[in-house]
């Protein structure tokens, strides 16, 4: 058998989410915004969860946000993640509003704080999937 990390689960896109994952493949983070009520949403849906209007539009996200909460996983969920412990699981609130779950890279667990600014990066997984992950925002 090959690398146990290949056993890490990858998302299976649905018709509603396929454009999101296709953009990730090009290292672009998309959000949906409702043309009727202007609400942003994540995860992608077939309708606007605020007003139920059909066909939310895809818009480019800034890729910037802040850590809403985090934890350091010391005990891996499965052998596929054994090489990664300790890893930082985080809820990231994007500047546009929606929250997503991700991991924080390029940051020692002891240095993570709630509210810390982060920016998106992408990690390659098997089956031609790129996962959005986050790292400390570059100073500007």
């Amino acid at each position: 058998m090959g690398d146990p990390r290949d056993a890490r689960p990858v998302p299976r896109p649905t018709p509603a989410t396929a454009p999101f994952w296709a953009a990730c493949r090009e290292h672009r983070l998309l959000l949906q915004r409702c043309p009727a009520c202007q609400a942003y949403q994540f995860y992608p849906r077939t309708l606007c969860s605020a007003c139920l209007a059909h066909e939310p539009e895809w818009v480019a996200a800034s890729g910037r946000g802040s850590v809403r909460s985090f934890t350091v996983i010391r005990h891996p969920v499965s052998p596929a993640f054994a090489d990664e412990v300790p890893y930082v699981l985080a809820l990231v609130r994007l500047d546009e509003g929606p929250t997503l779950m991700s991991v924080l890279r390029h940051c020692a667990p002891a240095d993570v704080t709630i509210g810390m600014p982060v920016e998106v990066a992408f990690e390659e997984r098997r089956d031609e999937v790129s996962l959005p992950v986050f790292r400390p925002a570059a100073g500007d």
């Binding site: 989410t17 996983i73 891996p76 969920v77 499965s78 993640f81 890893y87 699981l89």
Partner: peptide
């Protein structure tokens, strides 16, 4: 969530 959480390797305690 199978698509938007599980790929990151979360655990129930996490």
């Amino acid at each position: 969530h199978p698509e938007f959480e599980i790929p990151y390797g979360p655990t129930v305690p996490a």
